[in-house]
Structures are given as C-alpha cells and as structure tokens.
C-alpha cells in the first residue's frame, strides 16, 4: 500500500514525539547509570544496547528487528523436546 504522505510531512508530524521518546530513553539510561550496582551480567541491558544499534540502521524494518531482539528464539524442534508427536 503506497504511502499517502511525503517523508517531509511524516517527519514534521513525528519530529517532536520522536525527540521526546529519545529523551525518555536517554534519561532512563542516565538514571540507571547514576544508581548503585552493576548490570554487567544482565542480558536485558545487552538487548537494550542491541535495540539502540538497530535504530541507526537504514532499513525500514527496525520495529520488527527490535521485536526479535526482545524475543526468545524459535525452537524448530519443540515437538521433539516436548516428546510430542503429530499422532499424539
């Protein structure tokens, strides 16, 4: 389905919301860094960093890619792992 609006029109409408959301993320990360303790072993911090990297990519599937970063991987062998067969 072709877009009805120009990139300029969309950007004009989205600039302030995007600016606000980036500031929220930046402030939350600052808040975490000012707190005591370390997140060195927390995989969620790695996920957040990977998601931020996706924002810098040029492709237009960033939302899908960030969803996948925060998802468990699909295990094709789940039936075998559960010992479930098609005729069960």
């Amino acid at each position: 389905m072709p877009g009805l609006r120009t990139a300029r029109e969309v950007f004009d409408q989205q600039f302030l919301p995007v600016r606000a959301k980036l500031l929220e993320v930046a402030a939350a990360l600052d808040r975490i860094d000012r707190s005591n303790g370390s997140l060195a072993n927390d995989p969620r911090r790695t996920q957040v960093q990977a998601a931020i990297q996706v924002l810098l990519r040029p492709e237009d599937d960033r939302a899908e890619q960030i969803q996948l970063i925060f998802s468990r991987q699909y295990d094709r062998d789940w039936r075998e792992n559960f010992r479930m067969t098609n005729d069960e």
């Binding site: 925060f70 998802s71 468990r72 991987q73 699909y74 789940w78 098609n86």
Partner: peptide
C-alpha cells in the same frame, strides 16, 4: 506476551498447519 510471543506464535502455526 512479550518475549514469548515469537516462539509461541510459531508453535501455534506449526500445530494449525499440521
């Protein structure tokens, strides 16, 4: 929900398509 959605959706599709 959330991190379980991708795997769960794929499992559901596996069962339906089978």
């Amino acid at each position: 929900h959330l991190e379980d959605k991708y795997q769960g959706t794929r499992m559901i599709l596996d069962m339906l398509c089978d």
